[in-house]
Design a protein around this nucleic acid. Structure first.
Lengths: 253, 253
DNA sequence: AAGTGGTCTAGACCACTGA
DNA sequence: CAGTGGTCTAGACCACTTG
């Protein structure tokens, strides 16, 4: 029962509930442990299930919980840091990156991508699909649009389709000199296909990283990478990231 | 009525609703326009208000809508790109950044920050509060922790408190040579005080950017900046960002 | 005071997982 | 199959903004 303060608080119940649960997670649970089910928890705190769910949703958004339909709610491990903007710029597909080519096709890109690539409307570009995993868990799905002019030597690309063709296109890309790259991060929600790749439900919160790769003074490729927002911390800079703000939120005074 | 497909779809109503609304926003509304209120909209689509709200919540998360209690729901402008990791690293408070010092105090930092700064537990550091605005709108609130050893010359800092003291501390910081910085981005939810600064309700989704500033081989300062996730696109790189993925989500095939 | 979005309830049924 | 989280309903009241 949340009998701590009940009269004088204009604070929403779900907010208070979230705080209580958050503290309980720190002190009484270990990573991977299963929580009681939502109906029991709601009853225990004397609130409707919807209210309890509102608190759980926020905790999941903050990466503290993991919920899976048909299974239950578990305590999530700390977010994993994934490097997305290394100091030394490199082409996608360079040796040592942890992306897995999935597919490759010629397609008409979305208007915004077409504008960046300076291709005409309705004009095909290479579309390479890749997925990224760390520690065996899928963390990101990517759509990589490559101007046809950036990979002109199609004769070297004989694979008709699939991952083999994707690898061939990326290999050709390495021949260009990469002059720069710039990225942007924003919040989005997973489309149905991304959600499937990321092992989440559609609409799950994701961090969308769009990157322009610049060569020969033009944008040679555009990447739209979709990262699981619940499990990932995106790091920019030289090292693999610093352990700040990863766990329970503590504040000075 | 959502009479389009009703029998064979296991697609959730709110998801379908979101799609319909999203298309309507593209074609029938202009930025800043007010939508009908939630009760009317729900009735118009033949769903419960809670279901309608689930769709609106997602659209707000994606930066398509803006909702304000007591006012209404409006069509949001495209997200504004804010630069958070320039190529040439600079100290916070350097000339030309668009942060506004608010406050300054000596406080014991959270454990994770203390570890990064390599200060002992319970040891005070400078805590500078700043806020960032673009186009007159508040976009971020920052807590900037600065090791006392990084600003030893306290005699130059005579302002007792407030923004003046913050500026003085930052000015002293510029004397050090900045050797590097590294950042991480993750999803969070606004605490009560951040929410007030950002003109949002507590729990609103935010992008938390934590940055380590390195000088003399040590971490001299740590910044925890909280950006409004609904209105901001964080850009990393040389330019101010590229117009990709900013608007309605269009896809090839 | 009227109208808005925000919170909350007590139910119901569905989709999925695992034994 | 039983148990889980996900969706949905039809109400109610509250907090806030604006005229």
């Amino acid at each position: 029962m949340g009998t701590t303060q009940l009269e004088t608080v204009p604070e929403p119940k779900y907010w208070h509930l979230k705080t209580v649960l958050s503290e309980a997670l720190d002190t009484e649970f270990t990573v991977g442990e299963i929580l009681p089910n939502e109906r029991d928890l709601a009853a225990r705190f004397g609130v409707a299930r919807a209210t309890l769910r509102q608190a759980l949703e926020q905790l999941e958004l903050e990466g503290r919980l993991q919920r899976r339909r048909g299974v239950g709610t578990t305590v999530a491990p700390p977010r994993v840091g994934v490097a997305v903007g290394t100091e030394q710029h490199v082409w996608p597909g360079a040796a040592g990156d942890d992306w897995q080519p999935v597919d490759c096709a010629l397609e008409v890109p979305p208007a915004a991508v077409a504008a960046a690539l300076e291709t005409g409307a309705e004009q095909n570009v290479h579309l390479v699909r890749r997925s990224r995993t760390t520690h065996g868990q899928p963390v990101a799905a990517e759509l990589l649009y490559i101007a046809q002019s950036a990979v002109p030597d199609l004769s070297a690309i004989d694979a008709p389709a699939g991952a083999a063709r994707a690898r061939a296109v990326l290999r050709e890309l390495q021949r260009l000199e990469l002059e720069g790259q710039e990225s942007a991060v924003e919040l989005g929600s997973a489309r149905a296909d991304d959600a499937r790749q990321l092992d989440r439900l559609p609409g799950a919160p994701v961090l969308v990283v769009t990157t322009r790769y610049i060569a020969e003074g033009r944008t040679a490729a555009v990447s739209v990478a979709t990262y699981r927002a619940d499990t990932c911390r995106l790091t920019f800079g030289d090292s693999g990231g610093v352990e700040i703000h990863q766990g329970p939120e503590r504040r000075a005074s």
